[in-house]
Design a protein around this nucleic acid. Structure first.
Lengths: 130, 130
DNA sequence: ATGAATCTAGTAATGATTCCTATTATTTCA
DNA sequence: TGAAATAATAGGAATCATTACTAGATTCAT
């Protein structure tokens, strides 16, 4: 099925790409409503699903009961902060080395791929701890 | 809070340890009911939670909407089969090497730990594909 | 054995997500 | 351009995994 160009869809993807918080569908709904007050939550869910299928956004199946979404489709890792629960991106400088490590792993185990969630302290909570 | 020794709890943990299927709470409920026909689903949920807190079973937060449980608390990986959805254990012979790889990763990223889900074909589906 | 602590079955409530439907918007191409 | 065809929407209902509640039963520590 071909995706139409609707206002709702355009604004959903636009707002998601402006965020670095990996919002849940309902969090994004609140934000999108500032631009489109009559949009429905179902529309947000449906579009996030379709956009994820089309590879335009990432659907994150991390721990926790709600799914989260990411407008950044470039390869990177996610860390859940053990203090506040926020999801933080890990744009490691050592990315290529880590990537090599994990590809080795996939190779050795003869599998297709992996899903990795890191656990630790986000920058904010680390700062507060000191 | 100290855990009492109830029939229900004993049989739940016993049955879980006999399984290698990483059952959901409701799947385990069906099995436990063969021994305790009047047990309630809530009891299964509550006990799995308590046993996980006590480190006696593992609560797996993998992708998919239902949580799964594992009576094997030794360190190992899980793979979700892309064909049938089953969760299979990865008791890699190369475990120690993999473990080293991942500990390096944690070290480099300065995080506390990780949660890894592998994706691939389980033994059964691989056999059927041939 | 007994009082305190813990647990149970059964049921209700919750909350994230999906489904449904009548209506509206977008696309296609004659 | 302007129908007809396709896809999308708002709003609300339904689903389903999980958690919460409660009165009565079991287990524990002494």
């Amino acid at each position: 099925m071909k995706l139409s160009n609707t206002n709702q869809r355009r604004i959903i993807i636009e707002e998601l790409r402006n965020l670095y918080t990996h919002p849940t569908a309902d969090e994004l709904y609140v934000i999108v409503r500032e631009k489109l007050p009559q949009i429905s939550l179902g529309t947000v869910y449906r579009n996030l699903e379709l956009l994820a299928d089309a590879g335009k956004v990432l659907k994150l199946e991390l721990s926790g009961k709600q799914k989260r979404f990411d407008g950044n489709v470039n390869k990177h890792f996610h860390m859940r902060c053990r203090a506040c629960g926020r999801i933080e991106d890990m744009h490691a400088d050592k990315m290529s080395e880590i990537d090599r490590n994990l590809n080795d792993l996939v190779d050795k185990l003869k599998v297709d791929g992996y899903r990795l969630e890191l656990n630790g302290l986000c920058n904010k909570c680390r700062a507060e701890e000191e």
